[in-house]
Design a protein around this nucleic acid. Structure first.
Lengths: 233, 233
DNA sequence: CAGTGGTCTAGACCACAGC
DNA sequence: CTGTGGTCTAGACCACTGC
């Protein structure tokens, strides 16, 4: 016999009613007072169950009116991405092509929302799997005085990791942009591509809590070596 | 003057301590009883604030031990994808190339985890933007007796929408897989591609609550017309 | 054993919806 | 005005941890 907590029963039974369309998007739930009677529970317990429904996107509430069934977002996915490990083959070796401090050109200064008079750290790398080059990677970090640039640490680091010494990882907001491109001659050479092949290009942009850009990266994956996956919830 | 609820202050002040590394991953929080004293609040109020921290991935708890700071997942992104609307250009017109009921071949029966003796609905479409073909789209749905196939409704529907009449959208689990490919001759013809160009290929797989596949779709986007975006949180 | 978080109760007062 | 959800209190008992 399973005797789960009351608040879990509230959660699961209402969830089931929504799943089987007994309750439809926009419908109002019974008032919390009614649910208290129905489950013979206190209001705190009922609200505990409703909180779970809210967290999983099943309901929302309007103060003074009631709790309502949410319209499902059937276009929302959770994707796990980091340039070092992906679906088909993870990176088992890297090669530092270049580490430099440069003056940003117009487009880069714009991208990082910084003055052109400040400096930027440039990092270019190649990623390998089983001896094959599978990705070409470029990063730009606004240079901050005293920023520790240790080549050994840069070699294997993801973009968030490169910044984790200056800023708590919790305080970093991240964007990615995914697209498909044809390699240019430089890419073909670096990635040793002979035939026609597509690249999966992933841009990363990192921001601090004030939405100031603190890093930009672009990774060009040989299309044969990467698939990104996502799931609902 | 802002006088936010006590539980929000608990949430924000602890979040800030984590963001500025005063509390590091693995660190233990003060016991709830101590937080009650610190904020002059009841345990329910403190736990309300801790629940928010938990929901946003800042902390986890071990019964009998305490609440701990979570290691941040700096590789998790939320992506909004649906085959009809994407970053660069949305679909403003569609063309139904084929709607058919077919016997699945080996690979398809496997993909949909169904018997080869059952039937599958096949839907092939072209998506247009401003008169240009931007995507080629194929869907497979296991045929269920009495399934309503109304061409007018199929034309503009996303994969989840096609199934929403049989199953509540809440009860559908979704997977996507994203990759880059070179178009074959058929694709080039359909999408009127002349030069070299990359395709962004997005597979969708839908499951019911018992993890039984209920639909598969694959969409080949002209790489010039699509960018997918994701953000942390 | 004492201390922790997990669950739960039976109240309370508030701001806000709608009549 | 009554009814709703939002916030909050001051308790309680439990299972679990670590000593």
């Amino acid at each position: 016999m399973t005797s789960s907590p009351v608040y879990l029963r509230v959660f699961e039974e209402i969830k089931e009613k929504i799943n089987c369309s007994e309750l439809k998007p926009g419908d109002i739930l019974p008032p919390e007072s009614a649910l208290c009677k129905q489950y013979g529970a206190s209001r705190a317990t009922v609200r505990n169950g409703l909180a779970l429904l809210f967290n999983e996107g099943y309901i929302y509430s309007i103060p003074g009116k009631g709790n309502f069934v949410q319209s499902p977002q059937s276009n929302k996915y959770t994707v796990y991405y980091d340039e070092m490990s992906n679906m088909i083959s993870s990176v088992d070796d890297t090669k530092l092509l270049e580490v430099d401090i440069i003056s940003p050109e117009e487009y880069l200064a714009n991208l990082l929302q910084m003055s052109k008079s400040k400096n930027v750290i440039l990092i270019r790398r190649l990623f390998f799997n089983d001896g094959e080059p599978i990705a070409y990677d470029v990063k730009y970090l606004p240079y901050v005085k005293g920023m520790p640039i240790v080549e050994k640490e840069i070699e294997q680091a993801t973009l968030p990791e490169m910044l984790s010494k200056d800023i708590s990882p919790f305080a970093i907001k991240r964007h990615i942009r995914i697209q498909a491109q044809i390699p240019n001659e430089e890419m073909k050479k670096q990635l040793r591509i002979k035939e026609h092949l597509a690249l999966l290009v992933v841009e990363q942009k990192l921001f601090d809590n004030d939405n100031k850009p603190i890093g930009y990266g672009i990774t060009y994956f040989n299309g044969d070596y990467i698939k990104l996956e996502g799931r609902s919830q």
